[in-house]
Write a protein that binds this DNA or RNA. Sequence first.
DNA 1: CATGAATGAGCTTTCATTCAT
DNA 2: GATGAATGAAAGCTCATTCAT
Lengths: 204, 204, 204, 204
Amino acid sequence: MVGLEATLPPMSKRDRKIDAIHAAAARRFAERGYRGTRMADIAADLDMQAGSLYYYFASKEELLVAIIESRIGRAVESLRAVLDGGGSFADQIEAAILGHLRAFQDDADIYSIFNFERLSDINPELAEQVDQPGRAYEALWGRLLDEGIASGELRPDVDTRVTVKAIVGLCNSVLLWYRADGKRTVDEIADEFSGIVLRGIARA
Amino acid sequence: MVGLEATLPPMSKRDRKIDAIHAAAARRFAERGYRGTRMADIAADLDMQAGSLYYYFASKEELLVAIIESRIGRAVESLRAVLDGGGSFADQIEAAILGHLRAFQDDADIYSIFNFERLSDINPELAEQVDQPGRAYEALWGRLLDEGIASGELRPDVDTRVTVKAIVGLCNSVLLWYRADGKRTVDEIADEFSGIVLRGIARA
Amino acid sequence: MVGLEATLPPMSKRDRKIDAIHAAAARRFAERGYRGTRMADIAADLDMQAGSLYYYFASKEELLVAIIESRIGRAVESLRAVLDGGGSFADQIEAAILGHLRAFQDDADIYSIFNFERLSDINPELAEQVDQPGRAYEALWGRLLDEGIASGELRPDVDTRVTVKAIVGLCNSVLLWYRADGKRTVDEIADEFSGIVLRGIARA
Amino acid sequence: MVGLEATLPPMSKRDRKIDAIHAAAARRFAERGYRGTRMADIAADLDMQAGSLYYYFASKEELLVAIIESRIGRAVESLRAVLDGGGSFADQIEAAILGHLRAFQDDADIYSIFNFERLSDINPELAEQVDQPGRAYEALWGRLLDEGIASGELRPDVDTRVTVKAIVGLCNSVLLWYRADGKRTVDEIADEFSGIVLRGIARA
DNA sequence: CATGAATGAGCTTTCATTCAT
DNA sequence: GATGAATGAAAGCTCATTCAT
């Protein structure tokens, strides 16, 4: 069986470079913030001069926009994939939390930017571009919880709005402390979180 | 009964001004970040000139340090107060969560800075100054959970390290979406959170 | 009799500084062009640092705009004053040419910018702001010539459009070579020009 | 009768390319100025990359120099041709003005650069290289006027220095407003100008 | 010959900070 | 105490220029 990667179009040298710049910039933006990152920092990570980045991007802001636009699709898909999985209510919750945390494994940088960068200060349209999938994601969680209430698997007195914020906030908080070389794997953390959440909201 | 305020020493005009600067700066730092805030912004909020702030602080960094130092004590106390409260395990958990969120009511700015500002980029010692109480706070939570396990009120298979991170991260995530004029009060949110956490970790 | 200057409001220190910056910048822009002038050049003329100029202007472009806006009124008035003068046709032509050239004595810089700087490349609205009085000025000349034809003082076969361009272009060309310390005074040049123009277009 | 072109040596491919670059650069320099023109702009007009221009020129400045040097000869010749024409005084004036304006038809770009670009800022020797023929040209005009005075065809009180500046400035001002697709042809403009100038300076 | 990629010097602009008044 | 004014050290960005391919 051929892997998915094989179906991807071959990348030009330029595209590979752009990808590398994305990666370096995303890492810096995630670590030091957009404002705390100098073009020279990103360039240095790639053994380039700051001015050379402008061969690929018109501005620091456009670089940020490009990063987000190039990844936001994947992020939304990865979120949506959860629901398509089907299975029991508990399975879906578990899968959703696991999917959420696993997305951080490859894309911690971009999710950190999504969640903790003040995008509306930089570019309001960009903020909206990120907020919208974020709201859609929360809506998916809301529907999942509503179904749980309807099916009786979830306590009927659960405040779904607050609970969605709780679950998503809980998962995102992992970005602030998780280290790939730490004691817990993402899967272990997801497992622990799922336990808390499921018991926490399940019908007694 | 005499209020606590009455016991505070009278504030000089200078001290009141310093307090006002703290408040304005904390608000700005929380809203736009340390780097995204200009001295001129803070000054403008107080109808002053940027240069005038230097009569009270030697630098922007020192202003940040002063803000944190002046409030970190209160923050730690408010955290520690929880444990001194005594009561049942469930009561303590509830009180701790409620205390955590109520602290945000008056000091959302400072807690936002504590949690989301990259202090080590600005001043490593400052970061340590904040991290230490943060770790102490997590240690208190850890002890609370350990006691719960010991007393049998908490599932013995709970991963306390991860669970502490979960509870604290859950509570802190409120800073990212809570609005004083929103639909839920802090107490309602705390109640919902307590329910999830307690059921989520309690012995079946 | 009190001079007009006496009625001008006293200038604040800041306004005087702004005026000095205008003068220095106008001189540089006229001599080296907008693009060929560095903020550091202007600042150096005033014994300042380039950054200090930004205490008074938000950008180099705004500085150019401010210069033009602060002087364009005077320029238009000085042009319009010619027609109000009345007198015979020949007197008016003479007065107009003299007025045109005398305006260069005090404001050669600004008129050089008006005439030779490519303003639409820098700021299209600014270009329009300058072009409009320019067109109005040419329209005044056109009316003057039309009246001359009507009154029979001017050859009826004169192509007024081209002649207006000729007179204005002739006068403006002085900006390219006139030096205050040169052999001819502005009044002498104006006299010579008037002679050529009047004989050149007068009815035989 | 054989055309003049036929006597020119055949141009190599390289020479044709150089000519094309000259033309593109001259147009850009004339339209936006030397400083306002990027090498990339010139290259784009020729469907090339900026770097490729350096196969033909060592620098932007050298490109400007090359343009001027390759055309200055023709310009001077075209000016000098006027005097060789002979004919009456009036005929010579008319022919000179017509020749001046007709030169603009094919070489408006280069004459715009000659007249309005601040060459001494870019390359003092270059400026001298252009100024010298310019002065020679004015000297030719001066001699023509002197002859006119001597022969009695010209008013003896004419200030020839100023008058030369006037005539040349008048003609050059056409560069600032003439459009090939405008209402007047170059010949019509020249005719109008000749009329003004001749009557303007002729003995009564 | 031509290009894509990179450089590095130079410019505008920002902003924390200083200081005479 | 406070201000207006100025500084100077970044930082983002531009662009002529270079060079391996």
